[in-house]
Structures are given as structure tokens and as C-alpha cells.
Design a protein around this nucleic acid. Structure first.
Lengths: 141, 141
DNA sequence: TTTGGAATTGCGAACGGTTTGCAGTATGAT
DNA sequence: ATCATACTGCAAACCGTTCGCAATTCCAAA
């Protein structure tokens, strides 16, 4: 079976090896923001002969052809998500580690304005919000 | 001479050693966002016997007592700035590496709203904008 | 002021995430 | 099927950062 990402890779003209097929599969199935070790773990369940070096190399490759995007959530390792046209950002639940994606046109507009006022054209940006659930914000530590 | 940061450290009750005095001096004089290696380089010019391990330890200490703040600009190493009450963010000039600080009340308001709408209370956040100067945005690579 | 114990330092080794050199293997255009 | 090229696995190297340890420094109390 050809996974969504595998199809994308073929479109981009990448040589599809067994390892890459498995990694594409794993990433197609993921609905979270796995780091390389996690991708390797999941890939190894499908084919245990995949080395972590290959996962690192493949992630970089997929990033280069813009099939996936690196997300730096400040925890010291690279996380990834499927590339998408829409700008979005992340809210990280510091209690549970859950990551919520959100988009905000107003935010984008203000950002543009700020850059313009400073005499700059935006080539990239990132926003992360760390938060705790409102309904138990007062509890515990 | 007692530097601004040294005074702050004394207020916080830190034991002031020669090394810490020098590092406080360096940080008081800095108007940029040096990384640890750069702080060490500058400190070593004042007293060459300061080891980089001590700089690492001191930066962490100063961060813990909120005299300085760590800034993660996505370049793989920690950068620092003096702690300040006002929220601000960074625009990084990707051509020159220059870092411009800015604040925006509208931005803060929208951020709060986004979090509230998602059911969260903000405990931290960060925004970075990467840009190129408008007046030569079309030139070069 | 000298003293003593706790805190700090410098060194080098270890760390965790990531990259790389190399020899062997698989891929897919011919 | 063939073959050059690209990819893989392994282990070693990398880079920013932390840590264990013995030696040194600080500073509060005498």
C-alpha cells in the first residue's frame, strides 16, 4: 500500500527504498509531533532493520523537499509534522505535554505589521504558547 | 566598581566570587544576546583564569534567580539577555544576524485571547520573526 | 584577625541529540 | 540482467552542555 507521504515523495522524484517507504508510512499515520527517536521506534515495529542514522537522514531529506516540517518546541530535540500550506502555531500544555495547533489571521496580520514597521520583510517566524488548562489552573503544582 | 548586575546579585544574596563579579560585569556591559562561549570570551579578556564550566554554571545560576533570561533563537545554543519586566520578542535579521527587540500590546492581547479560547492559561510563550531588510529584500541570495 | 566548613572553581570526562566516513547493499535507468 | 549511483548500517565524531572530583575561595563566627 502506498502511503500519502510515499506518494508525495514519488512526486518529488525521490528514490524509494524500503526504509523510506516505512518512514513515510509512519509519518502518514502520525497525528502528533514525534521526534526522531519516536519515528525510529515506530518504524522499527514495521521493519526492525532500520537504523536510527537512516531515520535522521530521511527526516532531513523530507524536510529539504518540504514534505515534512521541523518543529522546535524548545525541548532540545527536533520534532516533525507534515508540511502544510497554512501557517499555524503550537500551544503546549505544560501539564500533559499535549500539543494543540492553532491559526490566527489577526496574529499573522499584526506580525506582518510589526515587521514592516521595523523595516523588514518576514521570511519565517514561530510562536509557541505554553499554558495550563483553565479549569484546573489553580490546582496542584 | 560594582556593576549593575553585581548589585542585583548581592540583593538576591548570592555569594560573590571573583569570577561571578567578572561575568556580572560582562553581562552588564553587553547590549546584545551573547551565547555562553561569547560571555566566556569577554570574561577571559578581563580575567583569563575563568573556565567555561564556571560560565555555564553562573549563567544557570543567574537564570534561576531571574537576573538574566535565556533566549532560544533556534540556532542550537542558548543566548542570554538581562531579565526585564516587559514582555518583548525578537526579530532576527537573517542576513546580518542582528537581533531587534520589539513589544506589541496588540500581540499580547491576541495571544491571551487565543489561549483563553482554547481553554488555557498562558504560563509562557515566545515569538520570533525572521526577516530581511525591506530595502534590499530583492537583492542577492 | 584567624579559622573552618560550606560553596565555588577548574579540569576533564560524560552526556544527549545529531552528523558523518566508510565499506557494503539496494535501487532503478538502461 | 547490468551497472553506476545512491542509500544503508555501523561506529566514531561532533557540539553544546553538564557533572564528578579534588583543590581553592569565600565569609561568618570566634
Amino acid at each position: 500500500m502506498t502511503s500519502r507521504l510515499e506518494a508525495l515523495c514519488l512526486e518529488k522524484g525521490l528514490k524509494m527504498t524500503g526504509q523510506r517507504r516505512v518512514i513515510a508510512q509512519v509519518l502518514s499515520d502520525a497525528d502528533d509531533h514525534p521526534d526522531v527517536e519516536e519515528v525510529h521506534r515506530r518504524a522499527a515495529q514495521i521493519d526492525s532493520r532500520i537504523s536510527i542514522a537512516t531515520v535522521y537522514r530521511t527526516m532531513r531529506l523530507l524536510e529539504d523537499v518540504e514534505v515534512i516540517e521541523r518543529v522546535d518546541l524548545g525541548d532540545g530535540r527536533a520534532r516533525y509534522e507534515e508540511a502544510s500550506a497554512d501557517h499555524h502555531h503550537h500551544l503546549i500544555d505544560t501539564r500533559s505535554g499535549r500539543i494543540i495547533e492553532f491559526a490566527s489571521p489577526e496574529l499573522e496580520a499584526i506580525k506582518e505589521k510589526i515587521a514592516r514597521d521595523l523595516g523588514y520583510k518576514i521570511v519565517g517566524h514561530r510562536l509557541e504558547i505554553y499554558g495550563v488548562p483553565l479549569d484546573d489552573a489553580g490546582e496542584g503544582q
